[in-house]
Structures are given as structure tokens and as C-alpha cells.
Write a protein that binds this DNA or RNA. Structure first.
Lengths: 189, 189
DNA sequence: GGTTTATGAATGAAGG
DNA sequence: CCTTCATTCATAAACC
């Protein structure tokens, strides 16, 4: 449907210049970015509002099932029961979560709270990675040589300041504040 | 802000076919609608409960100038433009990225940022695998509202906003990692 | 309630 | 291809 690619053909059929093509692509990409961010914002605000009205869920021993529907939790949080079972299995069968096991586990854990197979996959992967890393760099010592390859703390810190230490800065250019632009997006044009 | 609309004028300066124009206008109109709705909702929500500190909102990715030179980026990250092109191709030619196509693509995408053929291979493989897995089990949220299995989270949000998007257009909205290329916002002025 | 930490999730890349 | 690992991002929970 989109014949945008044909701009490189050196024939008289060309209907768009490269510049025009580039411009259009950029504009569409911009909309994609804006929409994505707005949706994120919307989700965040909605969930915040929801939380503000209903109060916070109990911290440790609460079962999510007792909580309200909320808007939809963006992130799964294991219940203590689920966590216990998971860690027990992790201790037993180190590093070999077969798919069948996952399915089986999902069913079992579903009785203790909402859960999906993907959650379990993620959990095991994260758990293993974390376990591995713990062995590598011990807690002590001032062995902090590089900031980019390995420093989640840094990331978190800058995150709050609205600044991100971004490794992929090669073609990165300039950031923007969505709020500044939201004002202008009245779509009147 | 969008000067695209003036191209429907029936003057000899027209450089786009009606079909192209129509397609682009459709896409942009969709984005405009989505953005408008989102902005409205955002404003409403903000005025209701913001001011309490602004919350966290979305994190803003910032200033590359503060970023160090780094040694080098270890991992390729597609620019929005690259991602857009890739997803468009993925949507068109499902599951058949020939070798020659890869080479051709590499050249094209190189104009939008650093990229290698291997990156494209990986991207397609990963993308397909992810697509497949999506059909298997609803990931993330534990509540599966539609049995189709083809519902990116964006979709439900848009439905929430009363905005409909054609499957054909979804891939444009689906773009997630849009960290840079914000410089492009200048051209709307 | 503002900040930090812990950890679930996303994804590029490698291995088989 | 399909599976697995490594890295990074985003956010719920915890801390102060």
C-alpha cells in the first residue's frame, strides 16, 4: 500500500523526492513517539489516581486477589506464597526450568494469586542472572571501574533527575520535554 | 503544525499520487486523533490530581552531551526510523527475509543510523519468535479479554480511549523503543 | 512523600 | 529456527 520505497528509482515515475519522503517518515515517527509517551503517561496517571482513591495495598502479606481490579497492574508481583514455592524450586532444580515444568508450576501458583507462564520464565531468568552476578562481583571493595557496563544504581539516580546515562548516544541528539510539546498539540491544523 | 494537508490542492506542484496522499493522511489522521484524545485525558487527569508534585510521569531521556564517549556501544539499538521500516517490512513479508533483502535493507537503514546485517537478521528472528510466543500465552496481564491472542497492550489502551486503529496501522503505534531522534521535532515548526 | 532499592519485563545477541 | 543469556529499562516496594 505504501510505495514509499520507490523514491530511489531514477525513472520519471518518481512522485516523491527524498526530502519529502524523509520528512514524512520523520513526522510519522514523531507521532509514534508522542503517542507512546502519552499512553504511558495516561497509564501512570490513571493508576496513580486509582491508588490515591483506594489507598495503598498492604505491603508484605497481602494477596493481590483481595485488591481491587485496579486499572490493570502493569507488573506482576509474586505473593509470598508464590515466592516461597518458586525459590524452593529454584533451589532444587538449579537452572533447568523445563517448559512442562513451567506449565505445571503456573497451575499450582495460580491458586495463590494471578500469574502467567511468562512471569515464571522471567522470574527464573532474573533469579539466575542475579545469582550469577552476585558471585562475580562481591559486595566489598571499591572495584567500581566502569560506570556504563555495570551500574544500576547510577541509572536509578539519574532517572529521578530526568537524566539518563545512555550508552547509545552515538546518534542520539536531543531530548525533549513532552509537557512542553503537549501544549502545542491541539491538532488545530 | 502539519503542512501535509495543503498537498491536496489540485495544483501542478503536486508530487504525490492521490493514493499515497490518502494513505499518509489516513495514518497521520489516526495519530492526530490518538494524540488529541490522549492529550485531553492527560490534561483532565493532571488537573484533577496533579499538582501534588507532578508524580513521576514518564522518564525523560536527556541530554546526550552529558553522556561520555563510552568505549563503544555493545548493543545495537534501532532508531525509530529503522524500527519503523523494519516493522513495515515485517508486516508485509511475514517470515521470508531473503539474504539479498537483508543486504538491501542494511544499506537503506544505514542512512538512519549505524546498523549491520547481523542486526537485521537478529531483529527478524527475535521479532518472529516474539510474535509467535504472543499467540501462545497472553503475556503480562493475567486477564485475557480476547481470545485472539493478537492484542498488543497499546491496542487495549486505544480502545480505552475510544480510538480505533486498523491492524494495518498498528505497527506504527507499536513502536516502543523510541529513545532518540527527538531532534526531529523541530520540523513541525 | 521524596528517594533508593529490588526486581519484573523487554530485547539484542549467541548457541545449538 | 528455537532456546538461552546478558544487559538495560521501568516501577513496585521499601526506606527515611
Amino acid at each position: 500500500m505504501m510505495e514509499l520505497d520507490n523514491q530511489q528509482q531514477p525513472n520519471p515515475m518518481k512522485v516523491m523526492t527524498d526530502e519529502q519522503l524523509e520528512t514524512l517518515r520523520k513526522q510519522i515517527a514523531i507521532y509514534a513517539t508522542i503517542c507512546e509517551r502519552l499512553v504511558e503517561m495516561h497509564k501512570t496517571l490513571t493508576s496513580q489516581q486509582d491508588l490515591a482513591g483506594g489507598g495503598r495495598m498492604v505491603s508484605l502479606y497481602a494477596d493481590p486477589s483481595i485488591g481491587h481490579k485496579m486499572t490493570a497492574r502493569q507488573r506482576w508481583t509474586p505473593t509470598p506464597m508464590q515466592l516461597q514455592i518458586l525459590e524452593r524450586l529454584f533451589d532444587q532444580d538449579t537452572g533447568t526450568p523445563s517448559k512442562q515444568k513451567i506449565k505445571d508450576l503456573t497451575e499450582e501458583l495460580s491458586q495463590h494469586g494471578q500469574i502467567a507462564e511468562q512471569n515464571i520464565c522471567n522470574w527464573f531468568q532474573n533469579r539466575r542472572a542475579r545469582s550469577k552476578r552476585k558471585q562475580h562481583c562481591g559486595v566489598g571493595s571499591s572495584n567500581n571501574k566502569n560506570g556504563e557496563g555495570e551500574s544500576p544504581e547510577m541509572s536509578s539516580d539519574l532517572h529521578l533527575l530526568g537524566v539518563q546515562s545512555n550508552p547509545r548516544d552515538e546518534h542520539l541528539v536531543e531530548s525533549y520535554n513532552l509537557y512542553d510539546h503537549v501544549e502545542d498539540y491541539d491538532m488545530s491544523g
